[in-house]
Design a protein around this nucleic acid. Sequence first.
RNA 1: GGGGGCGUAGCUCAGUUGGUUAGAGUGUCGGCCUGUCACGCCGAAGGUCGCGGGUUCGAGCCCCGUCGCUCCCGCCA
Length: 604
Amino acid sequence: MHAYRTHTCGQLRKTDVGQTVRLSGWVNRRRDHGGLIFIDLRDHYGVTQCVIEPGDAAFAVVDTARSEWVLTFTGKVVDRLEGTANADLPTGQVELRIEQAEVQSAAQELPLPVFGDMDYPEETRLAYRFLDLRRERLHKNIMLRSGIIRSLRNRMHEQNFTEFQTPILTASSPEGARDFLVPSRRYPGQFYALPQAPQQFKQLIQVAGFDRYFQIAPCFRDEDGRADRSPGEFYQLDMEMSFVTQDDVFAAIEPVLSGVFEEFAGFTGKTRTVDKAPFRRIPYAQAMLEFGSDKPDLRNPIRIADVSTVFGRADVEFKAFKGKTVRAIPAPGAGAQARSFFDKLNDWARSEGAPGLGYVILEDEGGVLTGKGPIAKFIPAAALADIAKSVNAKAGDAVFFAADKEDRAARLAGLARTRIGHELGLIEPDAFRFCWVVDYPMYEWNEDEKRIDFSHNPFSMPQTDRESFLKFSGADDKDALLALKVFQYDVVCNGYEMLSGAIRNRDPDVMLKAFEIAGYPNSETEARFGGMLNAFRFGAPPHGGLAVGLERVVMLLAGEENIREVTMFPLTQQGQDLLMSAPSDASAKQLKELHLKVVYPDKT
RNA sequence: GGGGGCGUAGCUCAGUUGGUUAGAGUGUCGGCCUGUCACGCCGAAGGUCGCGGGUUCGAGCCCCGUCGCUCCCGCCA
């Protein structure tokens, strides 16, 4: 007989009755009846009830066992007594009569109970992550993550993509985040950078003629965390392909994404619907107008409309909105809400730094639409009708207003849309709604520094021909440049950015020009991205690709709202590993080898 | 870097207007219990109220500072 087990703890069934078997696992739960003891033994595969009576040889050993001890039991599989079967347990028809028991490892009193599904403080969970990972929910999430990765790989292979590894020790890459640096021992004062993404490498792979590349790629960015964004490191499904248009890239990834979502949609036990390919496409400008965000949550039925012209009219005398961009957010059925509903939203808007959130409640008075609320008296009937029409509102609804400079009004309207949608219970449940956001602007105006900046990835292809692009002059063509769009695209699911990509700019002259417009002299562009620029001078195929945020996919499918719940060993929000104690001091010897001296910040 | 929330027994939490000896559940330890599956019953031990300072006759509670975790803003195309 095997030293530790003949079966797993999730395996035994009625057909095994009569066999002598051996199981190993952790004590999930111990129930001591004095006369007999039940031990629920748990391993990766499941739980099996084991039982022993005082006269039995191994009783003394089993009697000492406590939660989370690791034990090996040998004994006979028996049918459960009439009426004592457990229908909730796959192994619940049988139990193990313990004949021999061996303690493999005892456990101290637990800082974090494994049994049960209570919430525990993040600090405890991370410091004892090995215990937290034993718990059912996290254990399942991590297995889901592995299954998703396997599925993504298979689906990419099915479409003739090939997986390649790219370097971890490399040079600073073109993404805009802060780099993690690794000091060089052999080159004093010089540093490697960990890749923010394999961006340049995957483009070089295309130039090298490998065509359809993908990788489950680790990425490193020294930026602060959020609930949906781990600090420091994360994984992407990174892909790139040659001789493709934007439509080709879309067609390649849509079945992968919808396929993997469909495959795992049942994970939470609920039936969740998944949008089929092709996904809806929304131009960036439309997204900012109707959703107030470039991450539209399509489960929310509310659509924002611009009503600036209505408030600009002479017959509308509400001075606070004059000369501003005014966005209207309909709140279907909100007329029935108590005053506190409106006050709470107004307080919330103030906490977001807005002066407030104006609103009117629409009512029907003898077939005529009238407005109620603090600012209703400033809006004559004709204007009210126009506003109601623009957001498809009717009597019984309310309409909120966000008024500010255009970008701020759009943002506030977007946040209000999300909040109102949730408060009114309008969010479609149990659905994954996908869309492409396309036609991003190439540049944006940096008001602080009074100059033109790249708005997203500087390596995307502008949506104009080479000749007209090369003719642009930064200062004189400001308006034209800010209106210029690029072949850059995101997929958004339920308000989360799932992936981001672009058709790449592979023309060295256009690239130098693009950087020049953003204020980088050619010498600097050559110095920073010379490797890739140079490659483009030796026969570069048209190419494009994208990268899917792996943790976001797992998070959505797991039904979790925090990325730590789908990460095996996450850092705290402050970027520390409480289990391994990272970061930590380097020894004097290490620093000397690396030619480094630490200068601590002044304490004031 | 900034703003909000939290920090009380091993763990999860309660703790009134600032007032006597800081409580409960769970776990641990001891006793009882032969059919439980969150087993049950009885008892015991277990506290730097995150840390430091202050106000007060008196602070878990109020004030100041600080540390940790977290959510958000900045940042992350």
